[in-house]
């Protein structure tokens, strides 16, 4: 009985049943496989989120984002800056740096990216923690104030994509949104 002391005081000397032993071996090998598969994906896969991180103060990061938005504004045919719902759209050069700021309660600025071009994303927060959640792609990354997270991102689809916030950030959390457009 599991609720009584083992009747055999030398229980650790009892042999293990074949069924149990076989299952232990299977479970152990499967664990090893899953462990090494994570490592292997760093060599064979294309979805390994970079962990490159820099310390930054929220003010410094806001300055960088604003400079980025001023440098590469998307212009319409008549040369005027384009915005989506009041948020300026920035069109960075392919292969270039992209800055994205999470703050109460928006993702700023909006972006126009090119399909199959890679960008160096810089992600941080001006205030509280936020959750960068790109939909419907379903890429979800935590965003911390004070840390600038740098990773490469290559869109593989064209279309309009939404960014929602999936880290609770106060009463306006559910209204926090952003936009990325991917064109050919």
């Amino acid at each position: 009985m599991s609720i009584n002391p083992p009747s055999n005081r030398l229980w650790w000397k009892e042999p293990i049943h074949g069924i149990e032993l076989a299952w232990i071996i299977i479970a152990f090998l499967w664990g090893l496989f899953m462990f090494f598969f994570m490592i292997a994906w760093h060599f064979i896969g294309n979805q390994n989120l970079s962990t490159e991180t820099y310390r930054v103060t929220p003010d410094q990061f806001v300055e960088k984002v604003e400079a980025f938005a001023e440098e590469y504004p998307l212009l319409d045919a008549s040369g005027d800056p384009v915005d989506i719902e009041g948020t300026p759209v920035v069109s960075p050069p392919a292969g270039g740096d992209v800055y994205m700021l999470g703050r109460l309660w928006e993702w700023w600025p909006a972006l126009e990216l090119k399909k199959d071009q890679s960008y160096r994303f810089h992600l941080s927060s001006a205030d509280w923690q936020h959750g960068f959640s790109l939909q419907p792609v379903n890429i979800n990354i935590s965003v911390h104030p004070g840390y600038e997270h740098v990773f490469t991102l290559t869109p593989t689809q064209t279309g309009e994509f939404g960014i929602v916030c999936n880290e609770y950030c106060g009463i306006g959390h559910h209204a926090m949104s952003g936009h990325i457009r991917v064109v050919d």
Binding site: S118, I139, L153, T154
Partner: peptide, 9 residues
């Protein structure tokens, strides 16, 4: 599913 995601490189 993951292999069909946007690329991180």
């Amino acid at each position: 599913y993951l292999s069909e995601l946007w690329l991180f490189n």
